[in-house]
Design a binder for these strands. Structure first.
Lengths: 208, 208
DNA sequence: TGCAAATAGTAAATTATTTCACAAACTTTT
DNA sequence: AAAAGTTTGTGAAATAATTTACTATTTGCA
């Protein structure tokens, strides 16, 4: 696989291509053109070809891309082929618990292996057969359960603290749901799922 | 306010600046430099100045930006100043219900005024003093409740259908939580909050 | 087999976004 | 009141991402 700098937008689209391919694979479609594939995720043929060209030559001129093969290769490229990512969710509020049994997790090789909170009343209870642990023991939990990815679902004011603790415990990938900007070392992979930002962007465009 | 084409990334950052300003405003800080403001959201001073320069000259050389004033102006620019956006949530599964009483909504002028589902067992029940309505009545609900923004929180296979119905009923802004690409007319504002894409992007970078 | 149609791959052009660099404006100090 | 120190706003430069345009393959059919 490639060392080149892949645009972040390209990586995002790879996920979307992959999802679309899974769908049409179900329908036993064998080949798909860059035009169809682009149309399926709301972009164009040139973008598809450029995105894929970062990795390999997957297609056949005159025919398009072999659906099954490309799907498989994209799963490899995305690191969701057979691999098993261990996820810890910090913060078992409404959102946190919704995430624990979010079906999409398991389907793509992401396994929730630990759930943590700071609320003494919640610690010890179980969610989906996982015992809620004390966030004070974060480092121990991360090591014991070999966590790869930490999901931050705590209130904004605690988000930076738990994220920093997770990184100190060796975590290299963080998905943040808290409405807060996290400042973490460069080398840590950080993604935000920010409802407020999305809503405000809609608001911004609606009034124009 | 301006007609120019504002980069999407700039709009995203405006939200973050706004949030950061709200925080330091609480601490009665009166001025903030572009450097501090950038640092606060993980970008740099030049980016801050360029972003703000799309709209107006807010700062004072040698001093920085007046916190309260800039915060207020950004709220205006984002359309979250006193205005009241009416939101309908379609799909009252785990995620949908988590969203209904997501505090951050109300705080920024977004009011959930309707909740819909297709499940006969859920229709008629109440969530946060809202009666769950039949998604078959979507158009009527949107008109009656003067909905501005529709949040799609249904399973992927139904997402396109309800989104299209919402647009047909006059909706111009959609926030999609379903793991599906929605194809909607250009002029409709569409944002995705896509957990799978975020996780896969982390996975992609972790294996490199 | 040969020819028309379709489509991938890619270099170059274009467009968009970010960063640089510096003059002008303002504050603070002496 | 002048000098020194900050920090903004902004054109220009640099970088990044997308789109265009064209070549080369491959298919499918006569």
């Amino acid at each position: 696989m490639d060392r080149k700098n892949i645009p972040r937008a390209t990586v995002r689209r790879l996920s979307l291509y992959c999802r679309y391919l899974a769908e049409i694979r179900e329908q036993d479609i064998e080949y798909v053109s860059s035009r169809e594939l682009g149309g399926g995720i709301g972009t164009n043929a040139a973008q598809v070809r450029k995105d894929l060209s970062f990795f390999d030559r997957f297609g056949t001129p005159g025919r398009g891309y072999p659906v099954g093969f490309l799907h498989q290769r994209l799963e490899q490229i995305l690191g969701i082929d057979g691999r098993r990512w261990q996820v810890a969710i910090i913060g078992v509020g409404r959102l946190g618990s919704a995430l624990v049994d979010y079906g999409g997790f398991l389907k793509h090789g992401f396994h929730v292996v630990a759930v943590l909170d700071s609320d003494k009343k919640k610690i010890g209870q179980t969610v989906k057969s996982l015992t809620i642990e004390d966030v004070a023991d974060l480092k121990a939990v991360i090591e014991r359960s070999r966590v790869d990815i930490v999901v931050v679902a705590v209130p904004a004011e605690f988000a930076q603290r738990v994220a920093t603790q997770a990184v100190d415990a060796g975590i290299r990938a963080v998905l943040n749901f808290a409405p807060a900007t996290l400042i973490l070392p460069e080398e840590v992979n950080l993604r935000h799922v920010d409802l407020a930002v999305a809503m405000e962007s809609l608001s911004f465009h609606l009034i124009r």
